[in-house]
Amino acid sequence: MVGRAGEPVGLGPDRRAAARGRRGDRLFHGAAATAGVLVVLIVVLITVFLVVHAVPALLHDQANFLTSRSWDVSVPMSFGILQLLWTTVATSVLALAIALPFSVGIALFLTHYAPPWLSRPAAVLIDLLAAVPSIVYGLWGAYIVAPKFAPIQDGIQHLLGWIPLFGGVSAISGGTTMLLVGIVLAIMVLPIMTAINREVLAKAPAAQQEAALAIGATKWEMVRTAVLPYGRAGIISGAMLGLGRALGETIAVMFILSALPQGSAWTWSLFNGGETFASKIASDAAELTPGLGTGAYIAAGLVLFLLTFVVNAVARLIIDGKKDFSE
């Protein structure tokens, strides 16, 4: 029996309790939905505020924002992001190139190669790499690794100096180069990539693996034909997430990488110094004052935000597409 507006009639002994329950439901649903909408609002607000404060500075920019390499934020301002963009993208892609094979290898180790007693503690050890604060990576990279790394770099330069990427740069000594930053960033993004790869590789269907072994495949052939193909989408999206992390890493880059003097010549070499978007903003943080100058840094931050937004959105779309496919 149903009364007006679909209210159940005479079902419970206490209709007031039911009404209270409905009011509680509305309140609670409202609170949960508000929190969800707040998250959306935060992302929208970040975009809006960065754009609003970047535009006035961009309008006063005497140089081309996208193609200039200089960074002068005192009026008249002339600043451009080309050098920052190159340093950011080059170090991050380098980090990705190093971390990708390792993360797949380690994920295979954890899911298919490690003896059962080892696989869980080994996973915790890899996760611990993610728990080390980035400032500690920065200290370690700049003051412990760099001096030891310098002679190795000289050796690489000596052997491969004819390749533009490994050309000699006289201004930077002591190993604090983009190459070292790329290696340290690779270690920092390794845990997140490994975690995702491990998850997708563990889900490869067992029947096909057993079938592969049954028809005489070696273990590696089994992994190659019955495990890795199932992980491809997950591995790619994990790589994108790792790339996003590397693009935005601040303090480790700031500690390790030597800044370039203004007006130094352009080079493709990874033995160059420089600054990424994030490290530039952080190292000039003390000079930030409300005004047009800050707008230049906000514009740089906006570009970084857009870069990571695109990278993360692509990662997410790949994961979602795969989910639809497998269900």
Partner: peptide, 26 residues
Amino acid sequence: VSFMVDILSGVPSIVAALFIYAVWVT
């Protein structure tokens, strides 16, 4: 909402700070 949680988890920490600076100070 779910998508934005992912995007938020990818926001670089320096950008989050820049946002607070832009709101609070500027």
